[in-house]
Design a protein around this nucleic acid. Structure first.
Lengths: 166, 166
DNA sequence: CTTTTTTTCGAATACTATTCATTGTAAGTG
DNA sequence: CACTTACAATGAATAGTATTCGAAAAAAAG
């Protein structure tokens, strides 16, 4: 025990855990009974394993994905940001202000061409413009480049790269 | 009845529906009882409303978000793609091939600087390089620009822009 | 091989979801 | 503004699901 692989990072995850994780990636509202049946284990075992996975902070969360067209969102954009300063303080300040904006769905902190990518969902083009001008642009923001998103696609099965070598 | 607003798009969503949706955006594994308590309605009413929301295809799905560091993913990248052709066939071909790759977590179809943005989660840099060269680059792909992602942040409360004017 | 620890299991109990008859509320009609 | 009709909400009863717990099995440690 206590190998580097087992210390907090991945590990102690067996094939059954992987099945449980994949099932919940696909459908987070599955009942314990359904998961147990698909994994081929007893219900009590299944709920115990689930509790253990949660204790080990395997899950960041379980979220409903909504049809945005039914929520009044009519425009989605990717906004590419370059900053003038690269201190940790500035980076963190920008990130935490962006987290506060409900319109900002995803924040990618990048290395390369831009410093941040923001996935923004707005009511309409006026709302988008006002949001960017009033809340995204800051004195330490060097450039802002907005691109329209035609279509967004999410794969719930975030890949799992574990070798069950034993 | 039968106004444009009510036909399939948003509508007939009241404040209680909004509460239910927001609760499930934050935590998709909430029990019906918990949702009912927070929304201040009877359990039977709550499960009926939930069934109705599902019937109206309000939810794309409910997904577990996993701590990627525990799954053997050591590198995440945003890959910006430009194509040589812009026919619907080429676009759709590219999109559907990308959907097949488990490493591709999100696909953004864009208007503007690039045609597609791909959020990719890979084991390591070799895996990333091989994946891009072997499966992302196609004969109709003009350019590929890869940027490392330091950090990704997701806001589960996708914004809701409905006016409950009545 | 024996001991200790951990994991699994199923039956019992505790809890939760759904059904359904009833009541209440809002919208359509003369 | 009564009256009708349709729809939504309620709680009690039933059906179904989750958790607890003692026993047994399996895995790890000595």
């Amino acid at each position: 025990m206590n190998s580097i692989r087992k210390k907090g990072s991945f590990a102690e995850l067996d094939e059954t855990d992987e099945i449980i994780i994949k099932l919940l990636q696909k459908n987070a509202r599955l009942s314990n009974k359904q998961i147990a049946a698909e994994a081929g284990i007893a219900e009590s075992t299944c709920s115990e394993r689930l509790r253990k996975l949660e204790r080990n902070k395997m899950f960041f969360g379980f979220h409903a994905f909504i049809d945005s067209s039914k929520l009044g969102t009519n425009i989605e954009a990717m906004v590419s940001i370059k900053l003038t300063k690269f201190t940790k303080e500035v980076m963190e300040d920008f990130k935490s202000s962006m987290k506060q904006l409900p319109e900002v769905v995803s924040i990618y902190h990048m290395a390369g061409y831009s410093d941040f990518l923001l996935y923004i969902a707005a009511r309409d083009k006026d709302h988008l413009r006002d949001l960017i001008m009033d809340h995204v642009t800051k004195d330490y923001v060097k450039s802002v480049e907005t691109s329209l998103i035609y279509d967004f696609n999410f794969n719930p099965l975030f890949p799992i790269y574990l070798d069950h070598d034993k």
